[in-house]
Design a protein around this nucleic acid. Structure first.
Lengths: 139, 139
DNA sequence: GTTTATGCAAATTCTTTGCAATACT
DNA sequence: AGTATTGCAAAGAATTTGCATAAAC
């Protein structure tokens, strides 16, 4: 995907910082926390990354999920265009190793909302034990 | 529901504090944050409430949900018995008024997990605008 | 030269723990 | 007395902001 064009299309100036943050998220293949991004980009400042994330969120180029780890995690949106509700996949959070998995092929089942409620996003987060940790527990 | 018996049945000593916390959650009819509980119980100490919540969580008398407000919210489990995966309902978080709604009659649609993943809980959180706020936006 | 982005430092918010004091049995 | 609970105070962790510097146009 042409990240540069993708961003500028929406009127976001492409800075080195923004490209870097976006690429890190894209390459991670799983949602990263602010802390994890900091660790992966020693040259970048926490607040800069934070503001970049905020900006990317506003423009729906990434989305944030809560997995219960105590910090937000960010991931690039699926597909070539902005996030849509339908393309969101479910996540799995391992309570033992604290890793968040994306099940890209498992889309979030939709539900109807009561009259008057306007949906903008959905989080479907399953928690439990991942295969490796489940095995570990068994001995 | 007989809270006292409900608790002691599980070997939890029923203290005034614990009864109070449980009742507050029960009467709120929506998930409350630690901060909100503090505000509702001026006589109680933050750390005491926190430890009480931790204890109730461990014994599956309440559960915690993340709505993206930045703080965890707690609510009593549905039904007369411990939480089961099937009885969990979906939640709605209003991004404008920061209120979390329970849709008790909307159960979480189940999905199958890849081989080896063990599920212990699910969070299904819808975000957007509630009727009041949606109206407000329109003018 | 004006506007925008970044870095640093620190404030704020939320969660969690150590420890002494209190209450319960 | 001995164990469990509570209150206080503060540590830790994560998010967010103010302001000065630096970069971009």
């Amino acid at each position: 995907m042409d990240i540069e064009h993708h961003l500028e299309q929406r009127g976001i100036k492409l800075t080195a910082m923004r490209l870097l943050v976006y690429q890190e998220l894209e390459q991670a293949h799983r949602p990263l926390s602010l802390r994890e991004l900091e660790d992966r980009m020693p040259t970048a400042e926490r607040s800069t990354i934070f503001r970049t994330l905020t900006l990317l969120l506003q423009h729906h180029l990434i989305h944030a999920i809560e997995d219960g780890s105590g910090s937000l995690r960010y991931e690039v949106c699926d597909g070539d265009d902005e996030c849509t509700l339908e393309d969101q996949h479910i996540h799995f959070y391992c309570e033992r190793c604290h890793r968040t998995y994306c099940f890209y092929d498992k889309k979030i089942p939709q539900v109807s909302l009561p009259e008057g409620f306007q949906m903008s996003s959905i989080n479907y987060m399953v928690k439990g034990l991942c295969p490796a940790c489940d095995k570990g527990v068994m001995g």
